[in-house]
Computed example of a mutant assay.
Amino acid sequence: MSVNLPKSDSHSVILGTETPLQLDCGVTLGSISMAYCTYGTLNADRSNAILVCHALTGDQFAASRQPVTGKDGWWSMMIGPGKILDTNRYYIVCSNVLGGCMGTTGPSEIDPKTGKPYGLTFPIITIADMVRAQAMLQDYLGIDSWFSVIGGSMGGMQALQWAAAYPERVYSAIPIACAARHSAQNIAFHEVGRQAVMADPNWQGGEYYGSGRKPTSGLAVARMAAHITYLSEAALHRKFGRNLQDRDSLAYGFDAEFQVESYLRYQGINFVDRFDANSYLYITRAMDYFDLFSDHGGNLATAFEGTKTRFCVVSFSSDWLFPTSENKQIVHALITAAANVSFVEVETDKGHDAFLLDTPDMLRTIDGFLQSTARSRGLAE
């Protein structure tokens, strides 16, 4: 059922024509397209802007109707008049990440040098590269400092990168269900997904654009495997148990006999309509490379030394993809760096995806933090 969506504006801008984007891999992108959505109104002194960072499979349509699927935005519960990210009070910006497939420059976009899609000639990117591109958007918008940068999962990684790389540009940061570096377990799951894509004959070495064939089967399997990690055992049991799908007894075959099988197949099939397989490869690799520890000599506290940014870190008790222990590493580093930080572990059996769901304790925590932070910055009620 559709929620009451806030008024939004969809934009696209070309960035980096005068000052090219320098990537961590050593490549320079002289011109990038950035697609983004905005909600609410920027105030006179440009102090009420919040950057919402999306997760791996998200996009800029955080609270807008997704143009491919027609579904409500992935954070419609959070963004809108009177909601936690109140569009009567804040100016919300959400951009499609570098390497994405919804209008921001990525492997499916046209390489101006060849007139053809980049494919695998697109350079390898990092979370830091994504944030550098967002900083170019911030400059374009004329916003000196984000009131807050918020996101869950890969969005939380971006929030941390923002606070580490541009502390003077971030008044507050809300990293949710994330980590300061990607674990070996998570890299392993990503590799399974990438191999599923690349093993699909229709992947064609990444050159499937315009061929009439796409690696939909491989991408669907990648999505299915990843989606399992977003849930918890308790949530899976509560939703599906061992219930059969549209039958009363076992059929002794390989169709989707169990409801959980049917659910995962549904997730996979619906994903391939809105996401590019090569973007999946690039963005998962960017997450794998994320490591604020090694970026700062093995000492995470160094990443936030001297910061004046206010932090609110949120984790979920049943999240085994980014467990509370990894979120606490962030908190301990911030405390060591004498940062202003609050932390809440939300008790829930919804797993990693709790940040996308109606999770009351999370909503209360973020609302309370934003309210107190707004008072400290002098934002009117």
Rank of each mutant, 00 (worst) to 15 (best):
T302A: 11
T302H: 06
L160H: 03
Y208C: 11
N270A: 06
S183N: 10
W162A: 03
I228D: 05
F322N: 14
E233C: 05
Q185I: 02
L250A: 10
V341A: 12
A135F: 02
D24C: 07
F189I: 15
L42Y: 05
V93Q: 00
G205Y: 11
A339S: 06
N88F: 00
Q185H: 06
D353F: 08
N48K: 00
V149I: 01
I14A: 13
Q195T: 07
K83Q: 14
D273V: 06
K71G: 00
G142W: 02
V221T: 12
S262E: 01
P167E: 08
S47I: 00
E305C: 11
E109N: 08
P167A: 11
G218V: 11
G115R: 15
H54I: 07
I366R: 09
P117T: 03
A277V: 06
R223F: 05
V68P: 00
A301P: 09
A184E: 10
I187S: 13
M362L: 15
M136W: 06
T104E: 02
M130S: 11
A225I: 15
T229S: 08
M34L: 06
G152T: 12
F147I: 04
K83L: 14
L250V: 12
A234L: 14
I330M: 09
F258C: 03
L370I: 14
S315V: 02
M287Q: 09
N299Y: 10
L281R: 03
V313S: 03
I150H: 10
T114P: 03
L141M: 15
N43F: 03
N96Y: 01
T104W: 01
Q60S: 12
N48H: 00
L363K: 13
G119N: 04
A220H: 13
A226D: 00
T19Y: 00
G73C: 02
E347D: 14
V346A: 09
A380K: 07
L292D: 02
N243Y: 12
T121M: 04
E305P: 06
G156K: 13
E191L: 14
T284S: 14
D59N: 14
H237S: 03
K214Q: 05
